[in-house]
Design a protein around this nucleic acid. Sequence first.
DNA 1: TTTACTGCAAAGGGTTTGCAACATG
DNA 2: CATGTTGCAAACCCTTTGCAGTAAA
Lengths: 152, 152
Amino acid sequence: MQPNQIDVHDTADERLRRDGQRYTANRRALVDAMASADRPVTVVELIDVATGMPQSSAYRNLSVLEDAGVVRRLVTADDTARFELAEDLTGHHHHHLICEACGTITDIDVPTDLEDGVATFAASIAMSHGFRIEHHRLDLIGVCPACSTAAS
Amino acid sequence: MQPNQIDVHDTADERLRRDGQRYTANRRALVDAMASADRPVTVVELIDVATGMPQSSAYRNLSVLEDAGVVRRLVTADDTARFELAEDLTGHHHHHLICEACGTITDIDVPTDLEDGVATFAASIAMSHGFRIEHHRLDLIGVCPACSTAAS
DNA sequence: TTTACTGCAAAGGGTTTGCAACATG
DNA sequence: CATGTTGCAAACCCTTTGCAGTAAA
């Protein structure tokens, strides 16, 4: 169902080259870190895993990877960006469950019929507003079990 | 269908008082500015309307208004927060159409059946993940007509 | 040997906060 | 007159950038 790890790196390499960029050790480390996380991660989390990488390199490389379509940057309520591999690399279309207390994001799958409903709706809005719609976002926002417990 | 302007101010006043806060001229100006905009607005836009208000006051008051449940803060791809009146003040549940080129957000209405589908989905996720779900977000993201034209 | 990448340090830019003066209940 | 509010200026924090050196094609 999902492309394996090797495919992810190959594709990343290919997309970077297409942009005249190189798939360096730092960039591979970032991709690895994101591939092994099951949720979008912050720059700080990425740096913790890729030991010793300076923040500036992390940011710069993430930006290159984003431009090449390898990673996606998410911004939610708290002002820290989170990064995940592009969906066409993981082969896994998903949405997000967000805890507004701690900011953690969890991946969730959406039933096909709901997904279809969103697609139909998107098409109609594209038509009526003259908008070119690239993608959509369906987030459920609330408080995770851990934060619920902590608060009480 | 919608509560009128006076109700919005009354409700804002009431919710602030509940928090031991006052509904001052600055805060009223912010609420007015948001009520007369048909989309979420940035702090800079709010300041332009409420002439002379220092940024620090705008931020501080928006934060108080958010805590009181009068306004909602949105963060999207560009790193500038946007503010809108809480849905239970305007009586208008809606979602957003976001231009990833200029960052502008437009309000859109979602058909009832799709909305129901999202609600059902949210309930099932709440159950399976032990999450308390407060609200949801369905954004369509792409490029607006103006930016499409500008780019070509 | 040219072009991209690195890492340090410094700057940017949106947002928050300390503090003294002010205004409201 | 006690408590909330204002506005200035400075601090904050995440993020970006200049630059000199390094590595890859």
